[in-house]
Design a binder for these strands. Structure first.
Lengths: 232, 232
DNA sequence: GTTTGTCTTTGCGCTAGCGCAAATAGCGGA
DNA sequence: TCCGCTATTTGCGCTAGCGCAAAGACAAAC
């Protein structure tokens, strides 16, 4: 697989980079391919590289010492991940990145990226942009988890996901490939509750479900569940 | 009240700033004083200024359209807040900042700060440092909320707070000034449960409580509650 | 001292959601 | 086609934590 500088322009953090910047980055990076279920890095590893996913799909998750884990984010093509470690020389990854399917990512040395940012304010700005986005999303999700009921959180999780990577299938419906387990971890609940909620939605015709599959038939109704005021 | 450039060095984002930078910043900023319960800014306002608290105490909170809210962070002296809006020209504050007691903050124009960062990479780096810290903290708290029981979350909230601003009192114990309501909002629970948990701790001699007051008698036991593995 | 407002406690009932266990269904390989 | 693996469903019992309501405690102001 060959990556062109122009491809990198699709990465939000590189949108203001010059062609020379991109060329330089490419020259100094390597491609890493990971099979399904494999890991790009583990929480706690020294953050030697930052990554740009060029093919496949991955997820970022955080786990506690007791082994329980939550999904922080799903990564699709041309998204950057592992970038938090890029800021400090001695940083470690605060999360684990696992490939959901066979995936390839461009690995950029953190130290080199830091050097580039020193002399290119636009790169720093774009990275800060990305970071503020994360912070806001995490703050929102935190509030949701603290104050909202499970059904709504699941609806929100699905909608957030479709906004990022939902694909229309042949019937024009939006289809997602995810396990109940993933959905549960994204929403802060259990696989059992997730399954029950989806079953209920299916009974009401909002979705169709299958093994590792959710098809949205009435996206609007989902939005309503996600947004409507509590009837209190 | 007069702020000296040297004072600003206590702000983590300014630690690598030059004396000239600090002088410039001071000249271009104004002081805003807010009485107890007043607001520096509201969620949704255009982020025209970023702030550095120079006296008092404040909290950052996020509220949903339904009015429910969570505490994101407590701000003590020489901490920066409202900085997320500093990155984009058209940003809005993603949270509300309320004074917990009569407080004063230095208000720096976001646009001016952005200009300074353009030519001073060290400032960008220090701000990114702050942002990565936030992201990591929010990710952790999110996981805690999703996977851990209330008692442990309350213990964690208290410990996090003491790490930032806990003060030893005359007896050498650590004392905090916070309402049960605040504690509940920090921990993602209700005032009732927070009250019950503290009462239980008090019965076991871990803490002493009073109106808007929590004194840690056995901090180590709290750490144990916060960290010990589930007996599963 | 009394008043007033806010903060806190506690009894009580309730339910959303957890989590085990067992059954079922779907996919891929042999 | 059958087998084995993994994902999913569902019944069932249970409990952690919610949230109302009423009573009590504290602090500041009068």
């Amino acid at each position: 697989m060959t990556i062109l500088p122009a491809d990198l322009r699709k990465v939000s953090v590189f949108q203001h980079a010059t062609d020379d910047d991109l060329k330089l980055l490419l020259e100094r990076s390597i491609l890493r391919s990971i099979e399904e279920g494999g890991f790009f890095f583990f929480q706690g590893d020294p953050a030697k590289y930052l990554y740009v996913l060029v093919a496949g799909r991955a997820k970022l998750m955080q786990s506690s010492t007791a082994g329980q884990q939550v999904n922080l984010r799903t990564i699709s093509e041309w998204q950057m991940f592992g970038a938090l470690g890029a800021v400090r020389a001695d940083a470690i990854y605060p999360a684990t990145a696992q490939a959901l399917e066979a995936s390839t990512a461009l690995a950029i040395e953190s130290a080199f990226w830091r050097e580039m940012m020193q002399t290119r304010p636009h790169l720093s700005f774009d990275l800060m942009q990305l970071m503020t986005g994360y912070i806001q999303e995490m703050q929102e999700r935190y509030r949701e988890l603290a104050t909202e009921k499970v059904e709504r959180r699941i609806a929100r999780s699905i909608l957030r996901l479709t906004a990022q990577l939902g694909l229309k299938n042949a019937d024009g419906n939006i289809e997602l490939a995810l396990t109940r387990q993933d959905l549960a971890e994204m929403s802060g609940t259990t696989i059992f509750t997730a399954s029950r909620v989806l079953a209920e939605w299916e009974r009401n015709g909002l979705v169709e479900t299958g093994r590792e599959r959710v098809v949205l038939c009435k996206p609007h109704s989902l939005v309503q569940i996600a947004e409507e005021l509590d009837e209190s």
